[in-house]
Nucleic acid binder design. Structure first.
Length: 306
DNA sequence: ACCTGTCAAGTCTGG
DNA sequence: CCAGACTTGACAGGT
């Protein structure tokens, strides 16, 4: 079992892979100035991403989520005509190769604004464009389709059945590459694990099971003993199964992520996964302290073994 | 060096 | 119909 963290590294100084700019600022610049600004940010984000991978290698961290903001304003109209994939071909490849050579499994997560099942055509169109950006990004790194992209199902719009149908229908319009990469996650408010599982099974794609979201949002008749074997089954042929784990911030603010991971709850969940299946898996930790929380959890677990 | 208002994006709730 | 919450780090400009 391997632990992973998302995007930001707190141990490394001046190493954000998320440098960005605003449309308002860009529009004050000449066309040439805009290009320079975007190129500078992308170059730095790729360099910092590589630094983070090197940190991961040095600390034996084998699982990491790339930021979706490495390419600033990637699908915004201000970036139309900016051929960054050609310009930074080598840099993209360098990052992808480093991950592969050092057996660091990477993934991505489309943002909360990527909503494939929206009842608005323009939102669906932009969401498809955003997903295809993730695909082009990973293809530029020459990472195969076991490098996954996480997506939530989206909104409900007062009719969940229709919203789910729209999700499935719009999924079919995606390119083969992103279809092979997409994994769908149960969320904390709208779509339960059972609902996401049904979609995943029908589309033949994996579900990334989030235990914290399950605790926030589940129906009475759902139980882990029945769900987890089905979760593992969706991963057949898709690489190592991936799970999300986070500790609630507090009783009053249950849905938010805490700074660190509670080792006792974590161990309990992992033991349950190990009881469910012999298949090895990855766990993405979602918490404020990122890599620091991962290293702390590892220490806590080792201590408890003694 | 530090502080503050602002930022591409969607959905949902409550007034 | 509209404002604010959600969640939230980082930028740009000002002090």
């Amino acid at each position: 079992m391997e632990l992973g963290y998302a995007c930001i590294n707190l141990n490394l100084k001046d190493c954000t892979p998320n440098r960005r700019t605003t449309v308002g600022y860009l529009k004050k610049l000449s066309l040439e100035g805009q290009k320079i600004k975007l190129n500078t940010l992308l170059k730095e984000n790729l360099e910092n991403t590589l630094r983070i991978l090197k940190f991961n290698k040095a600390h034996d961290i084998k699982f990491y989520r790339f930021s979706s903001n490495i390419v600033p304003l990637a699908t915004h109209e201000v970036s139309d005509g900016w051929s960054y994939l050609d310009k930074f071909k080598e840099e993209f490849l360098k990052v992808g190769n480093y991950a592969k050579e050092n057996e660091i499994r990477v993934s991505m997560h489309a943002s909360q604004y990527t909503i494939l099942n929206s009842n608005r055509k323009d939102v669906v169109k932009r969401s498809i464009e955003e997903l295809e950006y993730h695909s082009r990004f990973l293809l530029a790194m020459e990472l195969d389709t076991t490098t996954k992209v996480v997506l939530h199902i989206g909104g409900v719009y007062g009719n969940k059945d229709k919203a789910i149908s729209r999700f499935k229908k719009n999924f079919e319009t995606l390119s083969e590459d992103i279809k092979d990469r997409l994994i769908i996650e149960n969320d904390d408010k709208s779509y339960t694990a059972t609902e996401v599982l049904e979609i995943a099974e029908e589309l033949g794609i994996p579900i990334v099971f989030d235990i914290h979201h399950f605790n926030c949002n589940h129906s009475e008749d759902e139980n882990l003993e029945e769900l987890l074997p089905r979760v593992f089954a969706t991963w057949k042929g898709h690489g190592k199964p991936k799970f999300h784990f986070s500790t609630p911030r507090s009783e009053d603010d249950y849905a938010s992520h805490a700074d660190n991971i509670d080792p006792k709850d974590f161990k309990e969940f992992v033991d349950l996964l190990k009881d469910t299946s012999d298949i090895d898996f990855d766990v993405m930790l979602e918490c404020k302290n990122k890599d620091k929380a991962l290293l702390k959890l590892r220490e806590d677990l080792e201590k408890s073994m003694v």
